[in-house]
Design a protein around this nucleic acid. Structure first.
Lengths: 190, 190
DNA sequence: GTCTATATTTCGATAGAC
DNA sequence: GTCTATCGAAATATAGAC
């Protein structure tokens, strides 16, 4: 599988010959299925892209940001499940950032490549939600990725489900500040 | 600067010709300063490596893990400062994982390349500290990286110092669980 | 669909003059 | 220390038979 090779050696250092060999046939046969090497990466990218629902758009709907905190909580839980069960696909993106970025810039795949990261960026940029809370949201993503991605190496002996549960708890504490009163006046405290 | 090019396009897609051009001379001149292309990457790697003190070894010292929580807190604060003031160097590692990994495997640089990630791995693997707490420690690293790395794009308009402060607060809440009694019996709660 | 060539290009690295 | 010129290797991609 190309996915494994890309994760082990990186996209650039993986030749079509290697991919073909692992698949059981020769390099030339690959060109029957994919027009360019880039297209193999694109196929993998779209596979991940299709996993992420349009929950993000819900975050954009409310102008005051009142509901965003709870919506985000749902979103991050979805993310944890997805990362846990599609670790390799997420790993591909994290370990091959330059290659994925090159995909977006490619003259081919212009329209097809609607980027998730782009939506994230504009969301985090808008001042609808207090900055401190946006930082915590961004932190939660990093926390989930860091733990669940490194799972194969760092927490190799821990079952994925248990790990996912622990990150969920941790992220929950991260998302709800100690003195919640400063952020959501009237909310129950500790 | 090679560092910028590596961060923009990735190590593999950056040719020596490009690097030389940005530096003002030709490709061949580079070979007077570096024997191999790999050595340019190594130089950058060592630059980051020298920033990280041997605080990690302190974490290994106590067998019960009692002090680890506080030591970790210090460690993560150091990390926040370092990432904030050396963003590009950390970015290089995050965005060029396969290339950095190849560095470690290279026949040259065998002894010179003592890896930081290796130490982290063995630390997180040992059951001296409760798993839930180790997950929170790993989460804190991911959180710091996620926010401070993406700073250039996501939180572009926020001063780095302010951003660092906000992550520090967030990570602090992450590191001290809501019901601390389960982890550190006798510790003051709330 | 998969094969055996082969074309084409790019890149890392070297040789040797200045 | 930097140059021009070139080598050799490896990779993407194509042509055409089966």
């Amino acid at each position: 599988m190309a996915l494994d090779l890309f994760n082990e050696q990186g996209y650039d250092k993986t030749s079509l010959r290697e991919i073909a060999q692992r698949l059981g046939f020769t390099k030339a046969a690959l060109y029957y299925h994919f027009e360019r090497k880039e297209d193999i990466l694109l196929e993998l990218h779209m596979r991940l892209h299709s996993l992420i629902p349009d929950v993000l758009e819900r975050l954009e709907l409310n102008g005051d940001g009142s509901e965003s905190a709870e919506t985000w909580s749902i979103l991050i839980d979805h993310l944890i499940d997805q990362v846990a069960s599609n670790r390799k696909l997420f790993l591909l993106h994290e370990r091959n950032f330059p290659a994925m970025q090159g995909l977006a810039r490619s003259e081919h795949h212009e329209a097809e490549h609607e980027d998730l990261a782009q939506m994230m960026r504009s969301f985090f940029a808008s001042p609808r939600i207090p900055l401190s809370q946006r930082v915590r949201m961004a932190s939660s993503i990093g926390a989930v990725m860091s733990v669940l991605m490194g799972a194969g190496e760092v927490f190799a002996d821990v079952p994925t489900a248990e790990l996912a549960g622990l990150v969920r708890e941790a992220v929950h504490d991260l998302l709800e500040p100690r003195d919640a009163s400063t952020l959501r006046p009237g909310a129950p405290v500790g």
